[in-house]
């Protein structure tokens, strides 16, 4: 069953220097227990997409178009009150920097109990029990004692586990995880990755895992959306995208992962820099960095085109392998 269906989402920032189309026509959908990997370089609009789903985009940003259908209701038009009752309850979010997401002057207990009681009329003791369960689920030793601690008494990895426990508190249908392991070291990163994957599988929670690192979602996601300059440039089942990338940008991302490059090839970096979102080129936003760019790429932006079951591409000259699928 579909949990989330985003259609043509547009989130723009109205800055002094002009309108930044941080998210420009993004669509994807996600079923129960499914994991979607949202991949792209920094600045491509991944976080803004995540915040748009929770309607937490700060001014000067605003969702200006599209639908965010969550279990049949459009979040884009939901009242502020109804939206609040969904947040942290049916839809939870985990942020990138665990050092900043917990309030430094409040005990873990306060921060967890309030998250339960914002949605459920339960006693403090009952909420506390739920907090203890959630903490032990994410592997925090002696959770009962740790409740009395302040965030600074935890390491970065432990803080992120606390944040994940908070996200799990009310058994949400959807969790948006915005690069939750990026700030952590590699061992802890893979531990947390494995745990979250297991939790999502056990509870049937749908998961949007945002990352700039294709390798992270390779073993985790059912399907992948590759974002570039506010748009999805390639999407499809994880295996298909990883084995036969169609978009030059996806190829570039794959080429920069150790072990994923094709036989005998050296690791490659995508040349050039992420585009200035306030001043995008006329045609394909990737054209200035693309080896296959032709004249048409520089004059008109390509449309997203289906090329197979669940697969779509936004490119005039996709890799031959992907075309074969169509």
């Amino acid at each position: 069953m579909t949990v989330l269906d985003v259609r043509d989402l547009q989130t723009h920032f109205f800055t002094d220097t002009g309108v930044v189309k941080a998210v420009d026509g993004v669509s994807f959908s996600l079923g129960e227990g499914e994991v979607l990997g949202l991949v792209g370089e920094s600045g491509s609009g991944k976080s803004v997409t995540g915040f748009s789903i929770l309607r937490l985009v700060d001014p000067p940003g605003r969702v200006v178009g599209g639908q965010i259908n969550f279990r049949g209701q459009d979040l884009a038009t939901l009242s502020a009150r109804d939206m609040r009752s969904l947040r942290g309850n049916r839809i939870a979010m985990i942020f990138q920097d665990p050092m900043m997401t917990l309030n430094p002057v409040l005990r873990i207990e306060t921060q967890m109990v309030e998250a339960v009681r914002a949605h459920d009329r339960v006693s403090h003791a009952a909420a506390r029990d739920r907090a203890i369960q959630a903490l032990s689920k994410v592997g925090i030793p002696s959770p009962e004692e740790r409740l009395a601690a302040y965030p600074h008494q935890f390491s970065g990895g432990m803080r992120q586990r606390v944040a994940i426990a908070i996200a799990l508190l009310n058994g949400p249908d959807l969790i948006v995880a915005d690069e939750p392991t990026t700030a952590l070291d590699v061992t802890i990163q893979s531990q947390i990755l494995a745990e979250v994957q297991e939790l999502a599988r056990d509870t049937g929670t749908a998961l949007i895992w945002i990352t700039h690192d294709l390798a992270v979602v390779a073993g985790l996601a059912d399907k992948i959306c590759v974002m570039y300059a506010g748009r999805i440039v390639e999407t499809g089942p994880t295996d298909a995208v990883l084995t036969a990338p169609g978009h030059p940008y996806t190829e570039g991302l794959l080429g920069s992962i150790p072990g994923h490059g094709r036989r005998g090839e050296r690791l490659t970096q995508i040349p050039g820099m992420a585009p200035n979102m306030a001043r995008l080129p006329l045609g394909c936003a990737f054209a200035p960095r693309c080896a296959r760019a032709s004249d048409i790429c520089r004059t008109a932006a390509p449309e997203i085109t289906d090329i197979g079951p669940g697969r779509a591409l936004r490119c005039y000259h996709p890799a031959p392998m992907a075309e074969g699928v169509a």
Partner: peptide
């Protein structure tokens, strides 16, 4: 700060 945004993400008033 992020902790305010996170508090909002928890659904607090």
């Amino acid at each position: 700060q992020d902790y305010v945004k996170f508090a909002r993400a928890k659904g607090l008033s």
